[in-house]
Design a protein around this nucleic acid. Structure first.
Lengths: 153, 153
DNA sequence: TATTGTTATACTCTATAACTATA
DNA sequence: TATAGTTATAGAGTATAACAATA
């Protein structure tokens, strides 16, 4: 492990932390959490959706999805509607507020991109992008896992 | 917002998610969480430390630190020792197991670096690093925040 | 019998407020 | 009076298991 590689990992982790913090904070100001926002995002793409489908999309248990929807209903982003063909199921549906919020998030994303990459040279952007791609590929190749923790103690 | 910028943000967020998942999973196999691991890391640098110092280091409330230490005590990574000069305070101290684990994590980090950057060309590594630095600088400049969420609904 | 979503239970991270022991 | 850490309480995300209603 060269020192430059170690530094690069440091920057990467720093970025992970910062991006998480920023997103969490910003979303909190509009009564959202990252998990609930992901649900909103899915609903925007899919339209009214069954809970189990959402649970699979987020790779989360059905029970956890119940909780997320509970929160979104309580804060007025979605409603639970009866499924027209299957009385066991409910269709989670965006409210007007939910739609509006999801729409605004697209604008915000554009502004965020501007902050991160605005005015960054073509060459550097390409290079950064390719680097990220390569890291992602490597991570996926290794089964998306950190090295098996060498047994401690 | 160009399409390439949008793609770059996508990769960045993907990486954030993957790194978080991987770290969480790997740590779970040795009975740790990311928060508790951060405490371990601090203890390794600082030696026996008062809880309030740790709370400030993690930017977390004293109450939250109590919970984190409770967990680390229960799983055998640290002990609470009386502070020699201040009977109000406790000194959180790594056990042998805690020391060993913290040590192993350094090795793991090296392996992880190898996965991410091993054999990556000098030029690309430099470029990636510089790109990350630039993004971090931009984020910091903008007060570590996403754009003020344009009022929804 | 299989599926959908719930209740029941549990663990983690997070916070504020009130309180105890000590400085 | 101020500080260190606790109990009390609360909300959010996560999970498994048991169960009701429906397919």
């Amino acid at each position: 492990m060269t020192q430059r590689q170690e530094l690069a990992l440091g920057r990467l982790l720093e970025l992970v932390v910062l991006l998480n913090q920023d997103m969490t904070q910003s979303l909190a100001t509009i009564d959202l959490t990252t998990s609930r926002t992901t649900v909103l995002w899915e609903l925007r793409q899919r339209g009214p959706t069954k809970q189990n489908v959402l649970a699979e999309a987020l790779k989360v248990s059905p029970r956890t999805m119940t909780g997320l929807i509970d929160g979104l209903v309580a804060t007025g982003f979605v409603t639970r509607e009866p499924h027209p063909k299957d009385r066991r199921a409910t269709l989670v549906t965006l409210t007007a507020h939910g739609e509006a919020t999801a729409g605004v998030m697209e604008t915000d994303q554009a502004q965020f991109v501007e902050i991160l990459f605005g005015g960054m040279g073509e060459a550097r952007l390409t290079c950064l992008f390719d680097g990220l791609e390569e890291i992602l590929a490597r991570l996926r190749q290794h089964g998306l896992r950190l090295p098996e923790p060498t047994e401690a103690s």
